[in-house]
């Protein structure tokens, strides 16, 4: 009896990962998941910073557009946003799904990053701005040399968290294409008619990637904290 269970497990693993080099599917899927996440987080930080500055701007139209963007993105499901971008906005353009996905997730993440950055900027003591301005620095110089460096350090943990959330969120790309890690699991499942091993495999790989990333980010954070004590 024990032997029988063991054989079934080996057979499941073999069909899922070894047969026809299916581990390569998972690897390629993981590659896309990382590529999409990384591109999206980088673009998202850029968009988010601009939107945060926009929302804090004194110029009414810029403030309005930034606030609207943040509000709409945070108020609608990621999946709906992705479908709109893929099937409506880029319907006539022949772009690789991973690029559309990365763009979609960047626009989505940007709204959350914007609120993180805005909170970070507002948490810096007003005296810092006054000191900068009293020395003759312009408001953009004050932002660039005095406020932003302090903000980034403060919001790093929140940004790291956003990155981790984003990696998991990218599984939604399955709505437009099966190129990612979860997509690989689904393709394998389509061949083997077995849910257990492909999904469990994907889950374990997601978990491992996020664990490694968490450890790396915690290390980076600790190093920045150390610089505080000096």
């Amino acid at each position: 009896m024990r032997m029988h269970v063991w054989n079934a497990i080996c057979d499941g693993l073999y069909k899922t990962f070894i047969y026809q080099d299916r581990w390569e599917w998972f690897l390629r899927g993981l590659g896309y998941t990382i590529l999409i996440s990384f591109t999206a987080v980088m673009l998202g930080m850029l968009i988010g910073t601009l939107a945060a500055l926009g929302k804090l701007s004194k110029i009414k139209p810029i403030k309005w557009i930034s606030s609207m963007y943040i509000d709409i993105i945070r108020g609608t499901p990621t999946m709906v946003q992705l479908l709109i971008i893929y099937f409506i906005i880029f319907a006539k353009v022949n772009l690789s799904p991973w690029i559309v996905g990365a763009l979609g997730f960047a626009i989505n993440s940007g709204a959350y990053v914007a609120e993180i950055v805005r909170g970070g900027i507002l948490s810096i003591d007003k005296g810092q701005t006054e000191a900068g301005r009293s020395l003759g620095l312009t408001s953009s110089q004050t932002m660039l040399y005095i406020i932003m460096p302090q903000t980034i350090k403060n919001i790093l943990p929140a940004l790291a968290n956003e990155f981790i959330v984003l990696i998991k969120e990218t599984a939604v790309i399955g709505m437009i294409s099966n190129i990612d890690l979860l997509g690989a699991a689904k393709k394998v499942q389509g061949r083997t008619y077995d849910y257990l091993y492909p999904l469990l495999g994907a889950a374990i790989i997601y978990y491992a990637v996020i664990k490694i990333l968490s450890i790396l980010l915690a290390k980076l954070e600790a190093r920045l904290r150390k610089a505080d004590v000096r």
């Binding site: 003591d125 005296g127 810092q128 900068g132 009293s134 020395l135 003759g136 620095l137």
Partner: peptide, 26 residues
């Protein structure tokens, strides 16, 4: 020149950088 009650030095910059920032940038 303005000197504040709470100093308002820039905590992320060294003393030297605190002093030279404005002369260099402005």
């Amino acid at each position: 020149g303005m000197v504040f009650q709470h100093f308002n030095l820039f905590p992320h910059l060294s003393v030297m950088e605190n002093i030279t920032l404005a002369p260099i940038k402005v």
